[in-house]
Simulated assay, not measured.
Amino acid sequence: SLDIMALHFISFKLVSIIIIIIDDLPVWYLGYSSLYNNSFWDIIYLISGIIIPCIVIKIKNIFIEKIRGI
């Protein structure tokens, strides 16, 4: 769905921001789709692209259930 795609995009950008901060890169590097092509950062991109959307959707569902239960 569109929600999951948007959350993937946000997750990947969060990883890119972390890389930019760690490597002291210019902010315009945030426009790149992926900053590195090595296994460590690929795994971090993969994990964040799966875990962050799952967590956000789970939290959203909990709030929706609580609101409907009121």
Rank of each mutant, 00 (worst) to 15 (best):
63 F>V: 12
41 W>P: 03
69 G>Q: 07
32 Y>Q: 03
34 S>Y: 03
43 I>A: 14
13 K>C: 10
61 N>T: 02
2 L>W: 00
69 G>H: 02
45 Y>Q: 11
68 R>G: 00
40 F>W: 09
29 Y>G: 12
44 I>F: 10
53 P>I: 11
24 D>I: 15
67 I>P: 04
41 W>T: 08
10 I>A: 13
14 L>C: 13
18 I>V: 07
60 K>P: 01
55 I>R: 10
51 I>N: 05
51 I>V: 12
36 Y>Q: 08
38 N>D: 05
46 L>S: 11
13 K>W: 10
64 I>G: 02
26 P>I: 01
51 I>W: 03
33 S>K: 05
67 I>D: 00
16 S>Y: 03
35 L>Q: 04
44 I>C: 05
43 I>L: 14
32 Y>M: 12
52 I>C: 07
15 V>G: 10
4 I>F: 06
38 N>S: 02
8 H>E: 06
63 F>M: 08
38 N>C: 02
2 L>S: 06
70 I>R: 01
11 S>H: 08
36 Y>N: 09
58 K>V: 03
34 S>E: 02
5 M>Y: 04
10 I>Q: 08
6 A>W: 06
1 S>N: 00
9 F>S: 08
12 F>K: 06
14 L>K: 13
54 C>N: 05
5 M>E: 14
24 D>Q: 15
11 S>W: 12
20 I>S: 14
50 I>H: 08
7 L>H: 04
61 N>M: 05
2 L>P: 00
23 D>C: 06
33 S>W: 11
41 W>S: 05
41 W>F: 09
46 L>K: 00
64 I>L: 05
19 I>R: 04
26 P>S: 08
11 S>V: 04
24 D>Y: 15
11 S>E: 12
38 N>E: 14
20 I>T: 15
69 G>V: 05
62 I>N: 06
9 F>W: 14
52 I>M: 04
28 W>G: 08
21 I>R: 11
68 R>F: 10
26 P>K: 13
53 P>Q: 11
57 I>A: 00
1 S>M: 06
66 K>S: 02
48 S>D: 12
16 S>K: 15
20 I>L: 15
23 D>F: 15
70 I>E: 13
34 S>F: 08
9 F>G: 04
47 I>H: 11
24 D>P: 02
29 Y>T: 06
9 F>P: 00
34 S>L: 01
47 I>W: 02
26 P>D: 12
45 Y>C: 03
32 Y>I: 10
23 D>W: 10
44 I>A: 14
59 I>A: 09
28 W>Q: 07
8 H>S: 09
12 F>I: 00
45 Y>N: 11
27 V>Q: 00
46 L>G: 10
50 I>C: 10
13 K>S: 15
10 I>R: 04
3 D>V: 00
46 L>Q: 09
49 G>R: 09
29 Y>I: 04
39 S>W: 03
52 I>F: 07
63 F>I: 12
43 I>F: 11
12 F>C: 06
69 G>T: 07
37 N>A: 02
51 I>G: 04
31 G>T: 14
36 Y>I: 05
2 L>T: 01
41 W>M: 07
14 L>N: 10
46 L>H: 04
34 S>Q: 06
48 S>K: 07
